[in-house]
């Protein structure tokens, strides 16, 4: 059976958008047959990425795309913003680094709970974080 290339986009600006985005992600994960723990991990990753947009970049978006492969299905989460960007990516990915007086666990923690993690940023041009979570069938 051929699946449509389904993509969902949630604009992120207010903290209520963070809730909408993670609920959207959990629902999609559930529809795709992800295990309950994996649904929670998808929602958590989205929550961290979306909150970073609200806090550090004012606005942006979260895109959720489904990847169908013969032996597995995945959710690709892309968080994009055109905020100030991150000057030192290596520090930003280290546990405990925060310019926002927070725990500094959002990015490194997200990296730990997903299967693929990619981040690109240039100062002044915003941040794009792309992560994938797979579920085997």
């Amino acid at each position: 059976m051929q699946h449509p290339p389904d993509v969902l986009v949630q604009a992120i600006r207010y903290d209520t958008d963070v809730i909408s985005a993670r609920q959207l992600g959990r629902k999609r994960a559930e529809e795709l047959g992800f295990s309950r723990p994996d649904q929670a991990l998808v929602a958590t990753a989205i929550s961290e990425l979306a909150r970073n947009i609200v806090v550090y970049a004012d606005q942006g978006e979260i895109e959720l795309a489904t990847i169908h492969q013969p032996d597995r299905v995945g959710i690709k989460i892309t968080a994009k913003d055109r905020g100030p960007g991150i000057a030192d990516l290596e520090s930003a990915l280290a546990d405990g680094f925060s310019t926002g007086n927070s725990l500094g666990l959002g990015l490194p923690g997200t990296r730990r709970i997903v299967d693929e993690f990619d981040i690109t940023s240039s100062p002044g041009l915003g941040v794009i974080v792309t992560v994938v979570k797979w579920s085997r069938r």
Binding site: R36, P37, Q39, A40, L41, T44, E48, D95, L103, L105, P108, G109, T110, R112, I113
Partner: peptide
Amino acid sequence: QPDVALSMVLLGL
């Protein structure tokens, strides 16, 4: 909840 606890641990919280 168990799933919540698990994601907290994996995230490092």
